[in-house]
Write a protein that binds this DNA or RNA. Structure first.
Lengths: 340, 340
DNA sequence: CTGAAAGCGCTTACAG
DNA sequence: CTGAAAGCGCTTACAG
């Protein structure tokens, strides 16, 4: 059996309280006893039992990571990458992270993530779109949480955002600088807060360059379904058939943009010569595509780390004012937007 | 505060022992008290505290998931997908899974995964290549573990394998049926047990069709470095320059195979017309590539689930004979191998 | 079938 | 600065 705190205490000739204090540094101990205890700990290779410590402190040492069921798919690796960022930061702070998913049609009575039920987490990171009923329930339980890439109207939740608006705005300006005149937009989930900001970035950038609103309107293919490459293809085909003068398309995600490229090529036109394409996210596939996709890179690891750090702050100071951290995105220029 | 077992006992007018028994069904309780207790549990929305239960039972309710540092990269999503399979199965059995990585140059003194130190897991799933010193250490700690896609010579560890040998063998036969005559092999990590089996499948299939050993030898590009697409490109270019008659190449992973396609194209030859290409794994990128990659699909989710189930068996019966489950792979035929 | 009691391995006031 | 003791919320023999 592994040694317990008692074994250490006995061998070091002190009480278990003293050992505990040495372990946690919560009070003063004389240098000599400290040394002695630490020597014994090292010698016996002692490590406090997690669950005992948790019981005593009434904390769990765990955080939860919740994503929506629909992202739990083979194709959607985006949130997996963010997960590793969270895990990495958690590890450095001696937390463990437990993962689970939640159905889109969340029912608080039945579909409660299991770690809420058994109080095994001290806080939660929530990835992307999440039913408000779940968020309400978390508020009711008074369990700290941080949203990533999502927000709720008129609720000041803690969150990590990407700079959707400025990122897109900048990408559009880049296209204009490249001499593109007729820049279109293709995307689903238009009611998702992050997506809407991308759209606003697109629109405002064009308006700032004196493109009339009705043109922008005509060049916008906005639907309210999941962002798949099929939607991208569909959107590109529809737009280009009606408006062959379009010479650039911004896709609201990489999946959309990759579909857009397919659509353009299907119509016998060339990317980037005839039509430039830009996406958003920088998923791995994008740099394998032909042509490689120009896109706004979301720093996935950093997002995860920041999410954990923010959560840690909230867990320490539960009544902290809620906080939003916006991370910049980076325009990665590749073959789909630039002719050489 | 959440209710505790005491609250339930008091309200139901029974002892906490009775509540516990109702909870775990470990002994007989009269139907009436059972009903009464269950009603109160439901009414108060009681859920036993994880850490207390763990302390009392001296188990953790957690399993660990260890992968090698090098796979902890943005590109390598393969093991992430398997992870979701493990998580899914664990969830159904009320286990939590904790993730961590381990350095390639594992040093038992310093780099011990943290959840071993604090005894917070009951068992471990190990993904892919792992230093034997870690495995030895786990044996020494007597902590149950299951390897996935890895094995150690002359050690009968519990493991989940893919059918590397037969999968590759079948893929080669398929190429022969397609009329390919000169089939080459490109791959790294030739000393990795799983990779070696793929190579053996390749070689044996050709030998069975009376291809002379020296030809097979000449058509093999085997190195002992990580399987990256760069290696694939390099291998394809080298082989094709020396042996322009090669009309098919098996890449030992999808990454390799995707690189092989690049190499072939770089030489101005066409896939699949001049040279057919097949990979192994079926990573997401493969179906986005142009041409789409024919490959042997590893059922990643199932792999994860099977790994957990096997681990569960081992945890229940620690002295169970060690067990290897081999999962079939499926040949997914796409554009890189078939001309239409 | 049910209850009183000990115990799991820690932490934390409280004395001294 | 250090120790004795209570307590965290469960489970599990052991009586009855």
């Amino acid at each position: 059996m592994s040694p317990t705190i008692k074994d250490i205490a006995k061998k070091a000739g002190v009480s278990i309280a003293t050992v505990s204090i040495v372990l946690n540094g919560k009070a003063k101990v004389s240098a000599t006893t400290k040394e002695k205890v630490e020597a014994v700990i090292k010698e016996m290779d002692y490590h406090p039992l997690h669950s005992a410590r948790r019981l005593a402190t009434q904390t769990t040492g765990n955080i939860g990571y919740i994503i929506w069921d629909g992202y739990f798919s083979e194709a959607e690796m985006f949130y997996s990458q963010v997960f590793w960022g969270v895990e990495y930061a958690a590890r450095n702070n001696d937390y463990y992270v437990l993962v689970t998913t939640v159905k889109e049609k969340f029912n608080p009575k039945e579909d409660l993530p299991r770690f809420l039920r058994s109080r095994v987490v001290d806080g939660i990171v929530i990835m992307g779109k999440m039913p408000t009923s779940l968020l309400d329930y978390l508020e009711y339980l008074k369990i700290p949480f941080v949203l990533v890439d999502f927000e709720v109207q008129r609720k000041a939740y803690n969150s990590i955002q990407f700079d959707n608006y400025n990122g897109t705005y900048g990408a559009i300006e880049y296209l204009l600088q490249q001499g593109r005149k007729n820049i279109a937009y293709v995307g689903g989930l238009i009611n998702h807060p992050s997506i809407r900001k991308r759209y606003n970035g697109y629109r405002d950038a064009l308006e700032a360059h004196n493109i009339p609103a009705e043109i922008i309107q005509k060049f916008s293919y906005c639907v309210d379904v999941e962002n798949t490459s099929e939607i991208g293809t569909e959107g590109a085909v529809q737009l280009l058939k009606k408006h062959p003068e379009i010479d650039a398309i911004f896709g609201c995600t990489d999946h959309i943009a990759l579909g857009v490229i397919e659509g353009i090529q299907k119509l016998g036109r060339s990317v980037p010569k005839d039509v430039a394409v830009i996406g958003f996210d920088d998923i791995p596939i994008s740099s394998y595509n032909k042509p490689k996709l120009t896109t706004l890179r979301v720093p996935k690891m950093s997002v995860g780390k920041e999410a954990f750090n923010l959560l840690l702050d909230v867990m320490k100071k539960p009544d902290m004012k809620s906080h939003t951290r916006i991370l910049p995105v980076e325009l990665i220029i590749r073959g789909s937007s630039q002719c050489n």
